[in-house]
Amino acid sequence: TVKFKYKGEEKQVDISKIKKVWRVGKMISFTYDEGGGKTGRGAVSEKDAPKELLQ
């Protein structure tokens, strides 16, 4: 599970739902399947990112 803040809201998403991951400076950005055909997005700092996300 990845915990992150998006627009001031605390969120979390299961690693299995993450589609795409990329690095922006010291942040790790990602998109994930929100269900219902929607794609969500989020970002975590490199130090807070789970190891599975960095692979």
Rank of each mutant, 00 (worst) to 15 (best):
residue 21 V to W: 11
residue 21 V to H: 04
residue 14 D to M: 12
residue 45 S to E: 15
residue 26 K to T: 15
residue 5 K to Q: 12
residue 24 V to C: 15
residue 10 E to T: 10
residue 6 Y to E: 08
residue 18 I to Q: 00
residue 49 A to C: 12
residue 52 E to L: 10
residue 46 E to G: 08
residue 37 G to A: 04
residue 31 T to V: 09
residue 9 E to P: 02
residue 34 E to S: 08
residue 6 Y to W: 14
residue 18 I to P: 00
residue 3 K to T: 11
residue 4 F to I: 05
residue 28 I to E: 00
residue 40 G to F: 06
residue 26 K to A: 13
residue 39 T to L: 14
residue 47 K to G: 09
residue 25 G to S: 03
residue 43 A to M: 15
residue 23 R to V: 08
residue 32 Y to Q: 00
residue 38 K to L: 10
residue 24 V to S: 13
residue 32 Y to H: 02
residue 31 T to Y: 10
residue 16 S to N: 12
residue 45 S to A: 14
residue 9 E to F: 08
residue 8 G to I: 02
residue 54 L to W: 09
residue 34 E to D: 12
residue 47 K to H: 09
residue 46 E to K: 08
residue 41 R to Y: 15
residue 14 D to F: 08
residue 55 Q to C: 12
residue 34 E to V: 09
residue 9 E to C: 08
residue 3 K to S: 11
residue 2 V to R: 01
residue 1 T to H: 10
residue 35 G to A: 05
residue 15 I to L: 13
residue 39 T to P: 04
residue 32 Y to I: 02
residue 12 Q to P: 01
residue 13 V to T: 06
residue 35 G to H: 05
residue 3 K to C: 09
residue 32 Y to C: 01
residue 11 K to S: 03
residue 4 F to S: 03
residue 42 G to D: 01
residue 32 Y to R: 00
residue 37 G to F: 04
residue 41 R to N: 07
residue 26 K to W: 07
residue 30 F to T: 00
residue 13 V to H: 01
residue 26 K to S: 14
residue 34 E to Q: 09
residue 7 K to G: 09
residue 5 K to G: 05
residue 21 V to L: 06
residue 28 I to Q: 00
residue 8 G to W: 03
residue 39 T to Q: 09
residue 41 R to M: 14
residue 14 D to K: 08
residue 14 D to W: 06
residue 9 E to H: 10
residue 2 V to K: 01
residue 12 Q to E: 15
residue 18 I to N: 00
residue 45 S to H: 15
residue 16 S to W: 09
residue 50 P to N: 04
residue 25 G to T: 02
residue 6 Y to P: 02
residue 37 G to K: 04
residue 1 T to E: 06
residue 15 I to S: 03
residue 1 T to I: 14
residue 21 V to C: 08
residue 31 T to W: 10
residue 54 L to I: 15
residue 34 E to H: 05
residue 27 M to G: 03
residue 29 S to Q: 15
residue 26 K to I: 13
residue 21 V to R: 03
residue 51 K to R: 12
residue 1 T to G: 06
residue 23 R to K: 12
residue 8 G to H: 04
residue 10 E to K: 06
residue 54 L to G: 03
residue 35 G to W: 05
residue 18 I to D: 00
residue 29 S to E: 15
residue 28 I to L: 10
residue 23 R to Y: 10
residue 18 I to S: 00
residue 19 K to Q: 09
residue 38 K to R: 12
residue 4 F to R: 01
residue 54 L to R: 09
residue 7 K to E: 08
residue 24 V to H: 15
residue 4 F to G: 02
residue 20 K to H: 13
residue 47 K to P: 05
residue 24 V to L: 10
residue 28 I to G: 00
residue 40 G to I: 05
residue 10 E to W: 15
residue 18 I to E: 00
residue 38 K to D: 04
residue 36 G to R: 06
residue 44 V to G: 00
residue 46 E to Q: 09
residue 19 K to S: 07
residue 54 L to A: 06
residue 27 M to H: 06
residue 30 F to A: 00
residue 54 L to P: 02
residue 12 Q to M: 12
residue 3 K to N: 09
residue 17 K to E: 07
residue 49 A to S: 05
residue 5 K to A: 07
residue 35 G to R: 03
residue 31 T to E: 11
residue 20 K to W: 08
residue 11 K to I: 13
residue 45 S to R: 13
residue 29 S to N: 15
residue 15 I to D: 01
residue 44 V to A: 02
residue 16 S to P: 04
residue 27 M to C: 14
residue 22 W to D: 03
residue 3 K to L: 09
residue 49 A to W: 10
residue 42 G to H: 02
residue 34 E to Y: 08
residue 49 A to I: 04
residue 25 G to E: 03
residue 2 V to L: 12
residue 41 R to Q: 09
residue 29 S to D: 04
residue 9 E to Q: 13
residue 22 W to T: 08
residue 40 G to A: 11
residue 28 I to P: 00
residue 42 G to T: 02
residue 3 K to H: 10
residue 1 T to A: 09
residue 45 S to Y: 14
residue 2 V to C: 03
residue 44 V to F: 03
residue 37 G to M: 06
residue 12 Q to C: 14
residue 2 V to S: 01
residue 14 D to N: 09
residue 31 T to M: 11
residue 25 G to P: 02
residue 3 K to F: 10
residue 7 K to P: 01
residue 23 R to P: 04
residue 33 D to T: 06
residue 41 R to V: 13
residue 24 V to M: 11
residue 25 G to L: 03
residue 24 V to W: 14
residue 53 L to N: 01
residue 13 V to P: 00
residue 22 W to K: 05
residue 37 G to L: 04
residue 18 I to G: 00
residue 48 D to R: 10
residue 18 I to V: 08
residue 7 K to F: 10
residue 36 G to E: 13
residue 51 K to Y: 14
residue 15 I to K: 02
residue 8 G to Q: 04
residue 52 E to H: 09
residue 53 L to F: 06
residue 46 E to R: 10
residue 43 A to H: 12
residue 54 L to E: 03
residue 24 V to P: 02
residue 41 R to W: 15
residue 31 T to D: 06
residue 20 K to D: 09
residue 25 G to M: 03
residue 10 E to N: 10
residue 15 I to Y: 05
residue 52 E to F: 13
residue 49 A to D: 01
residue 51 K to V: 14
residue 30 F to M: 01
residue 27 M to S: 06
residue 34 E to L: 14
residue 32 Y to A: 00
residue 32 Y to T: 01
residue 10 E to H: 09
residue 48 D to V: 09
residue 45 S to G: 06
residue 40 G to W: 04
residue 42 G to E: 01
residue 3 K to Y: 12
residue 37 G to S: 05
residue 10 E to F: 11
residue 18 I to R: 00
residue 22 W to M: 06
residue 17 K to V: 07
residue 49 A to E: 01
residue 9 E to N: 07
residue 51 K to F: 15
residue 52 E to V: 10
residue 27 M to N: 07
residue 39 T to D: 05
residue 38 K to W: 05
residue 4 F to V: 04
residue 54 L to Q: 07
residue 6 Y to T: 08
residue 39 T to K: 06
residue 23 R to I: 10
residue 20 K to N: 10
residue 8 G to T: 04
residue 21 V to K: 03
residue 15 I to V: 10
residue 38 K to S: 09
residue 32 Y to S: 00
residue 53 L to W: 09
residue 33 D to P: 02
residue 9 E to I: 14
residue 8 G to L: 04
residue 12 Q to D: 07
residue 52 E to G: 07
residue 17 K to L: 12
residue 8 G to C: 05
residue 19 K to H: 08
residue 27 M to E: 04
residue 11 K to T: 06
residue 13 V to R: 01
residue 36 G to H: 13
residue 28 I to A: 01
residue 6 Y to H: 11
residue 47 K to C: 11
residue 2 V to A: 02
